[in-house]
Design a protein around this nucleic acid. Structure first.
Lengths: 220, 220
DNA sequence: AATTAGTTTTAGACAAAACTAAATAATTGT
DNA sequence: ACAATTATTTAGTTTTGTCTAAAACTAATT
């Protein structure tokens, strides 16, 4: 597998992760900042290696073989992210770019030993699940606060908006990654949400609630 | 810098590491398992970027700029080797191939943090020195036992011959990487050497002495 | 000084992965 | 239903790094 092939496989996986419809050439091109014609070429090549199922004008879907390749790349990406945050003290929002490079390192032994070194983590620093060697993983349970019902409880694992202003707001309100929150009350009128934290209850506006991800603990 | 350019720079560095003569096109080709014509093409390209000094038919030498690039790649390679051995429990002889991939990861922050995480090591698992950020490093003090005078003391950091038979011999005689040895006596007649180890003195043949590297501690 | 053996460079070609421009298929709005 | 729009593919180039084969150079020998 070339680096480029791996990147296409990964992109196709992510584009079909939720809606399991076939993926459009244009969507891939846009995501990868390349041109649709380049996508067509590569998709033909991947199809010949039976990594994707492809028919002209019909979009693509990963084959089972392709899906396993994608999951092995994602496994590597997420394990490296855990390493960068837990062992090298990177902050959660700096790791993606470096992990995009590290995910292409080819060595099964390396990944096995890294996994062991990290204590077989189940999720990466953004709360996304880490597939095991066989591509098996628990569904993501990462949700925006605004999507959760009263009573939900979870660990804050990420933000949508990483502007300086927003991060400053979080800091001021003593909200940090890794904190555990519980949804106490949802105000129907304006969508604001009251959450309880270690340091007491606070009310956050709808805008904040649509920018904070929790990883829910009591779900499988 | 492309991956390929980095590999050429590194190879040229190693070929001129000891004899500071200019490096022959053929030598580079042989080392890199490529053809002399390919080397010429690349060397022209590197010359245009003033990474090497090159005149037709005269061989190449790294420029100061090129030397610093080489040292930064070597720094990365050796730091990753330390990581693989110290943190992931790879054995000293498995790490080179993986480190050849890891050395190309581009992130200054990553290398700084890795360096700190490893405790700012001075040498890699083979006893080779690790350049600092500015390309400064202490000369290698790695020597074969057969090259050392009586009284020398050092840490065993590597072997020349990594055949199963040789490794088995070392195991049987309780010689392992990381052990400290002192040269007690050299037999002129057959070149055999008596060394003291933690577990007592043993005599090793000249053949063994020319296959074991020590890193000398009391030298600059 | 000429020959020869070995090394290095040139020239032309190829594969991979991208591109542009043009052609063709699919979809959508009226 | 069909014209207009949008999406996709085809065809032909470009770039990077490689290759082979042939030409040119260097150095050593006669």
């Amino acid at each position: 597998m070339t680096l480029s092939e791996e990147d296409y496989i990964k992109t196709i996986y992510h584009l079909s992760e939720f809606n399991s419809k076939s993926v459009a050439t244009n969507a891939i091109a846009e995501q990868m900042k390349t041109k649709p014609s380049s996508v067509t070429d590569m998709v033909k090549k991947l199809s010949e290696k039976s990594l994707v199922n492809y028919k002209k004008y019909q979009g693509v879907l990963l084959s089972e073989k392709g899906r396993l390749v994608a999951l092995s790349i994602i496994r590597k990406h997420r394990l490296w992210e855990v390493f960068l945050v837990d062992k090298l003290n990177f902050s959660w929002d700096e790791v993606h770019v470096v992990a995009e490079q590290l995910e292409h390192i080819k060595s099964d032994a390396l990944i096995d030993k890294l996994d062991a070194h990290l204590g077989y983590p189940k999720v990466d620093p953004h709360g996304d699940p880490i597939p095991n060697k066989d591509g098996v993983f628990t569904k993501s349970v990462k949700k925006l606060i605004s999507e959760l019902p009263v009573g939900s409880q979870g660990v804050c694992v990420g933000v949508n908006d990483s502007s300086a202003a927003f991060l400053k707001f979080l800091d001021k309100n003593k909200i940090a990654l890794g904190d555990t929150f519980k949804i106490m009350e949802i105000e129907e009128f304006d969508g604001s949400v009251t959450i309880s934290t270690r340091s007491g209850s606070i009310r956050i506006s709808k805008q904040i609630a649509t920018n904070l991800f929790l990883e829910i603990v009591d779900e499988e």
